[in-house]
Every structure is written in structure tokens, then in C-alpha cells.
């Protein structure tokens, strides 16, 4: 067995340890792996270029930025805050729990593009959660508390998306599993793959939802 290609993985680990810029680490790992596998320098460049151009679709989420930027400049985040500040009973924990349920539920129906960091979390969810927290405490948040709350907003979007989307039959992961397993001689129904995602999806909801539920109690705290 030729173990030379593992030099690329070693490059990744070393780069991590040295805290080098991840883009540079990944590019170096690609070059090292290619050369270690015996490709010529020009061949390595060709593989890099071909693969990068083919994978450009991964950057298309950035197309939401112009819309979000214009709306923010004209007060979208301020409106979102004002709306939540007027709702009685809106607490950060309840708001995020509601968002988690809605996001995981819609993702399970295949509607993954209903949320996301540039289009929902930054302009809407984060300002709303901050407004709810400030409304509850009656004072502006400290920078530390604000950052923590914002990070939790992004975390909630990720957890709800990841463990919702694979309950959907036509989702990429289900199709990838089906395709790979079929190649290896195991024909699986997409429905059976999706159904086996349910235990983990419920566990994710319980664990993360429990954290969100405790958030309000912790905020009210010992005061």
C-alpha cells in the first residue's frame, strides 16, 4: 500500500497546529498530495484549476449579499429589532427555540434555502434575539453577552439545518449515500435512509432545544 499520499493529511494537521491561514494550508496540502502521488508540477496545477472551476457553485450563496446590504443600509435590522421589542413574552430562548423548530421542520421538507446566515441570521434573527434580550433585562447588552447571543443564533441555524435536511428524500446526503452504497452492491431505498435519520434528528432537537430552554432561566439567573 502506498502511504505517500498521506503527506497531504500531515500537511493539514501541521498547518492547523501552526495556526497558519486555512486557505494557504489547504492549497499546500493539495500541492503536496499531488506531488507525492507522482504528478508533475504542471499536472498538479491542472488538477487544481479544473477542480476549482468545477466547484465554483459553492460560492453562490454570496449572491444574497447585495440584497441584504442594501436593506440593512436602509434600516432592516432596526425594523426587525423594533418588531420583536413590541412583542410581549418574546425572550431570546423562546425566539431561538421557535426558529429551531421552524428551521428543522422546513429543512426536513426540503426547503433548506428558507434560512441561512447572510439572508436570515444576520439581518433578522440576530437583531431580534438581541432586542428580546434587551427588552427582558431593560439594559443594553455588554459586548461579550451580545457576541455570545449572536453566536448562538448562528449555531441554532446550523444545528437545525444539519439535522433536518437529511430527513428529506431528495437531499444531497441521502442521494450521495444511495449512490455510493449502490456502487458497492447495496441497493437502498432513499426512504429507508431518510427514516434512519430520525433518531439523531430527535436527539439534536432535544439537546439543542434543551440548551435554548435553559438560556432564559440562566439569563433570569440568581437575581
Amino acid at each position: 500500500m502506498n502511504l505517500m499520499p498521506l503527506l497531504g493529511l500531515a500537511t493539514m494537521v501541521l498547518g492547523f497546529a501552526l495556526r497558519a491561514n486555512p486557505v494557504l494550508v489547504v492549497a499546500c496540502a493539495a500541492v503536496v498530495t499531488g506531488l507525492a502521488a507522482g504528478a508533475s508540477p504542471l499536472g498538479v496545477l491542472e488538477t487544481l484549476g479544473e477542480a476549482f472551476v468545477k466547484n465554483r457553485f459553492l460560492a453562490l450563496f454570496l449572491l444574497t449579499l447585495p440584497v441584504v446590504g442594501v436593506l440593512e443600509r436602509h434600516g432592516l435590522r432596526i425594523r426587525a429589532r423594533a418588531w420583536i421589542a413590541g412583542l410581549r413574552g418574546a425572550t431570546p430562548g423562546r425566539l431561538l427555540l421557535l426558529y429551531h423548530l421552524a428551521r428543522q421542520g422546513t429543512a426536513a421538507l426540503g426547503l433548506t434555502s428558507l434560512g441561512g446566515h447572510p439572508q436570515t441570521v444576520r439581518p433578522l434573527l440576530a437583531p431580534m434575539a438581541e432586542a428580546a434580550a434587551e427588552r427582558e433585562s431593560g439594559t443594553p447588552l455588554s459586548k461579550q453577552a451580545r457576541d455570545g447571543l449572536r453566536a448562538l443564533c448562528a449555531a441554532t441555524d446550523n444545528v437545525a439545518l444539519f439535522f433536518g435536511e437529511d430527513l428529506f428524500l431528495a437531499f444531497g446526503a441521502v442521494l450521495l449515500i444511495r449512490g455510493f452504497m449502490a456502487e458497492q452492491g447495496h441497493l437502498l431505498e432513499p426512504l429507508r435512509i431518510a427514516l434512519w435519520g430520525i433518531p439523531t434528528a430527535l436527539a439534536a432537537l432535544l439537546i439543542h432545544g434543551g440548551r435554548l430552554h435553559r438560556l432564559d432561566r440562566k439569563r433570569k439567573g440568581p437575581a
Binding site: G8, V23, V26, T33, A51, N55
Partner: peptide
């Protein structure tokens, strides 16, 4: 652009038999 680089690395790894 990091996701694009990782996808590129994935292609290189597959070719090299990692």
C-alpha cells in the same frame, strides 16, 4: 473562498488515493 479550496483538495485526495 475556503469551501472551494476544500472541494479542490477533495478532488486531489480522491485522485491520489488518500
Amino acid at each position: 473562498v475556503l469551501p472551494l479550496y476544500l472541494a479542490t483538495l477533495g478532488a486531489v485526495f480522491a485522485k491520489a488515493g488518500v
